[in-house]
Design a protein around this nucleic acid. Structure first.
Lengths: 244, 244
DNA sequence: TCAAAAGTGTTTCGGATACACCCATGA
DNA sequence: TCATGGGTGTATCCGAAACACTTTTGA
């Protein structure tokens, strides 16, 4: 919605700029303080919702989702994956304003994104008053079917752990093994054995252990790791076979 | 497209009946003579394509796909699953007739279906001259990005084998273990060990061995099996953990 | 010195794989 | 009788899971 100066101007633009009846919604995941977060928007005087956008006439679905993501987080070139299209005719529950372009029925294509929490500076859009992170286990009631969309995204992410490594997009460049484990645990919603987890991760052959330890915390200082991007990408493409 | 008497009438109907810019395409899989087949349509004087349809104003995506499927195969209540939305702005390669409603850019939602070959009586639609089965390994050049759509469907089906049983929708009610194995082999594109395959299938606990054998063929008569629908559905929901 | 977190290795178990022999049938 | 396909069981191996002790650190 960048480029519009007001809500009215945006509403008025309608079909001139965007395809009718179509939107994308992004479930943006981040990881902070050992828990998985989702970025949500709050409508002015309204409910919370997923950040979403519309599709320009000469834009692909992926481009539209990337644009939305950039507008809300400032990030580009982040991990973004389409997971499902939602198209019940009553998915908005009759709650869209009638008459205007935006009052039409919408089919929305869901994307989920994995972003590095600390690099994100949440920005509300024209229609919103707030943009902030929520713990995935404490998401409020969202507008329309957005809770369902967000749950489906989480489920998809969970299933993808068996086939693809995760972390490059969610963790800072250097991180510790316990941090990585917490990430997996929060996505999966269950605890894992430290020793077995470490063995599996090492076996993936996508990690490089640095000659540094994370100092500052109490207790024994853990090693720092970073991903071997080359091998990580290869594992991403080929698929893995883990079992969590 | 049922209900229209001519191509012109259908084209003219446009937005009045369907959402603009949106379609569904179905990759319909069947199993016959030990190989996996896809149902394709041939445009009048044109290329082959996937059977597709459009979305009525008060219809969900799933309903639209089901309707399309019914129109082409006569089948209802078959296995149908959304797998991806395709939305490149140039996915039609500029090959759509300009001007008319159908000449607009389309985002299409891909579904794949698993149907019982022998129950299908392929019917062309208004725009088509033929509707017939092709071996998945001998699919001709299709219109637009339909080859890509069909490949993505096949890939999705392949991956789903690790998590879900398959066969109930593709095989006749009674079938033999070698038939079931062939089904898996054609989907996967590789051969499997007879004895191990049987053990795995039995272990899934979704099969019932009947006290009948398939007679008529040469050689030793194989047992007939059928699925235990209750257990099959349960396995479908819960997910399995196989590894092919 | 103690509590809490992190590093590390071994044993066990189960499922996947590899593999061979006998049986039934029609040609 | 023989070629072909179908039925069945066992030995092996590898990866997953279970599991305990030592080390470091700040409080």
């Amino acid at each position: 919605m960048t480029g519009f100066k007001s809500q009215d101007e945006f509403y008025e633009a309608g079909d001139r700029v965007y395809l009718p009846h179509l939107s994308v919604d992004c479930v943006i995941f981040g990881f902070h303080e050992n828990s998985l977060k989702v970025l949500l928007l709050k409508w002015k005087n309204g409910p919370w919702c997923l950040p979403g956008g519309f599709i320009k006439h000469k834009e692909s679905l992926d481009q539209s989702a990337n644009r939305t993501l950039k507008e809300r987080t400032g990030l580009t070139e982040i991990f973004l994956k389409q997971f499902h299209a939602f198209g019940e005719p009553d998915r908005e529950n009759g709650k869209r304003a009638k008459g205007s372009w935006i009052g039409k029925r919408f089919i929305t294509v869901g994307y989920y994104a994995l972003v590095e929490y600390s690099k994100v500076f949440p920005e509300p859009d024209l229609l919103s008053s707030e943009c902030k992170w929520f713990d995935v286990n404490a998401v409020p009631d969202l507008i329309y079917d957005h809770n369902q969309i967000m749950n489906k995204a989480l489920e998809t992410l969970r299933l993808s752990l068996n086939d693809h490594p995760v972390g490059y997009n969610l963790l800072p460049e250097k991180f510790t093994m316990p941090q990585l484990q917490k990430l997996y645990e929060t996505i999966l919603g269950e605890t894992l054995d430290r020793r077995n987890f470490q063995k599996q991760m090492i076996a993936l052959d996508v990690l490089i252990r640095l000659n540094e330890r994370k100092t500052g915390g109490a207790h024994k200082a853990p090693y720092l790791y970073r991903f071997d991007k080359r091998k990580y990408d290869k594992a991403m493409k080929q698929g893995l076979r883990l079992s969590f």
